[in-house]
Design a protein around this nucleic acid. Structure first.
Length: 288
DNA sequence: AGGCAGGTGGCCA
DNA sequence: TGGCCACCTGCC
């Protein structure tokens, strides 16, 4: 397969090797793999296939299997949040008064939140219940292989909800989805019957969007927040998973707080960009 | 071998 | 509301 030559991709602030990996393959997205031979990351989102690498420590470069036109470049830039002023947003986080947050931000300089296609972000996180990242990646790959559309000779997209609604629960179970198959099937049926539903939800303000998402079977607070944070650019979403529970209980002295209380603390303490703070803490906690 | 894993929904007090 | 448990499956 032919790829274009490597081209620079300008972004407002820089990744390093650790934070590029952490951003692409640290639990926000599940379709990136390290290509050792080429020393780059290869990923699929929507109908886009792209390779990324860092040169001279922090310069980001990309190439694609097709002609790299402006449309493709725009999609990749948007996916990576290249136009967002992350420096200004980071400055709004309460790191001045929060040494734990400050330490995690210093440990992961360049970490950012992806802006993935909304529908497939929801799908990936419907797979995430009580699963580790490598297993979620397997489920996504299985769904792409079984029901996705071919993009290149060796790349397939994740299936759309319409296609998923045509699959049976049993077919989905055979992809290793387990009890998640029932939720995915039921959610697919709802979305397929209301083709504008996800587009509408994505445009709503955070709270209303979350409320609507949680009406879908299998979507609780955590999965709704992940879909909105990683797939709709809603940086105030503060997903509380076992890792966040652990770090806030152990390091913020909230030992006897439950998930709901922790979520409320997070929104108040970290503010309008709580989701970004969450990602730093999440990466930091997982590295310990 | 048994328990646990980026949760959710249902049931019970 | 708040706590407990089943739910698929694979891996340590």
């Amino acid at each position: 397969m032919d790829w274009t030559s490597w081209e620079p991709l300008e972004t407002a602030h820089s990744f390093n090797n650790v934070t590029l990996r952490e951003t692409l393959d640290g639990g926000q997205a599940f379709r990136w793999q390290w290509i050792e031979k080429e020393h780059c990351w290869e990923g699929v989102f929507g109908k886009t296939v792209v390779r990324l690498r860092l040169v001279k420590e922090s310069k980001l470069e990309l190439c694609t299997p097709f002609t790299l036109n402006n449309s493709a470049l725009n999609k990749i830039s948007e996916y990576l949040g290249a136009g967002i002023d992350w420096k200004a947003i980071l400055d709004e986080l309460p790191w001045r008064s929060d040494p734990i947050l400050k330490e995690s931000m210093e440990a992961f300089v360049g970490l950012r939140i992806l802006n993935q296609p909304f529908g497939e972000t929801l799908l990936a996180f419907l797979c995430s219940a009580t699963k580790q990242i490598p297993q979620i990646k397997v489920m996504c790959e299985n769904m792409a292989q079984a029901f996705g559309e071919s993009i290149t000779e060796n790349h397939k997209s994740l299936p759309g909800w319409k296609r998923l609604s045509k699959a049976t629960e049993n077919e989905l179970r055979q992809l290793g989805l387990g009890f998640r198959a029932k939720n995915i099937k039921k959610t697919a049926d709802i979305i397929a019957s209301r083709p504008d539903l996800l587009d509408t939800i994505e445009l709503l303000p955070y709270s209303a969007a979350k409320e609507e998402l949680m009406k879908l079977p299998g979507v609780g607070e955590k999965i709704a927040d992940c879909a909105l944070l990683f797939g709709a650019g809603k940086l105030e979403a503060f997903p509380v998973d076992t890792w966040i529970l652990k770090i806030l209980r152990n390091r913020y002295g909230l030992g006897d707080w439950n998930a709901k209380q922790i979520a409320q603390f997070g929104r108040i303490h970290f503010g309008q960009y709580a989701g970004l703070a969450q990602q730093y803490l999440f990466s930091w906690e997982r590295s310990q």
